[in-house]
Amino acid sequence: MAATTPEVVISVRDVVNRFGPQTVHDGVSFDVHAGEVFGIVGGSGSGKSVLLKTMLGLRKPDSGVVEVEGHDITCMSERELRGVKQRYGVTFQHGALFTSLTVTENVILPMVELFALEEATLQSLAELRLRMVGLPVDAGAKFPAQLSGGMIKRAALARALALDPALLFLDEPTAGLDPIAATAFDDLVLYLRRTLGLTVVMVTHDLDTLARTCDRVAVLVDGKVIVDTLPGIVRNDHPWIREYFHGARGRLMAAAGEEAQRGA
């Protein structure tokens, strides 16, 4: 990937976001390359969600430019923006499945809204999405309240994939999952990236997910962003980043890992 200039899918330039007197992003710039998994980390209140919303076109930045596939989304009309939005899929932290619809109805909702298709075709496409995310086909008839946390995340991903997006945004995809389910979800993301060539942007706090899936990581600190590969970030001298990757939890994990290796 380093040899040739990678294709830029999203380009964020000098984005400033303010809430009253508080400046959340003070000139944030980075690129997301085609086909990579791009992680975003940052402390609580560092503006990860705001950054995600800005990239999704749900929030206009106070200044700066966000380009998706070469088009500036900050000065687009509603109609143009809708076209861009159909190119990406989003999963929200708590799934945001519509609780009054079954999983199948959730998945086909974007297709029902946008294309005139027959019921049988819609059912067939819903089945495809469920299979893609590894849900049993009979899960489609269930309501979100009847699903486990891991299944909700998968169902949300199935809905995000409904319109064949080239770009996937995941907000804390593995939060609240047990390590086995989280690993399975990481594998799923990697598998979809590999086979479908998706570009994935994810906000996550899960160090394992970061290490396993992300090609590059953006760290939000002090209203700025530092982008590097994960090893590069881990070697960074910034106190917050040191604390994040070398804090008590990180050390405990490393120590436990070494112990297990010695024991084996």
């Binding site: 159909q86 297709m111 946008l114 294309f115 005139a116 298709l117 027959e118 075709t121 496409l125 319109l163 064949d164």
Partner: peptide, 14 residues
Amino acid sequence: CRAADLGTLEAALR
């Protein structure tokens, strides 16, 4: 054939 062409494809397949 993109997602937006599903309708055309569906009709042809039928």
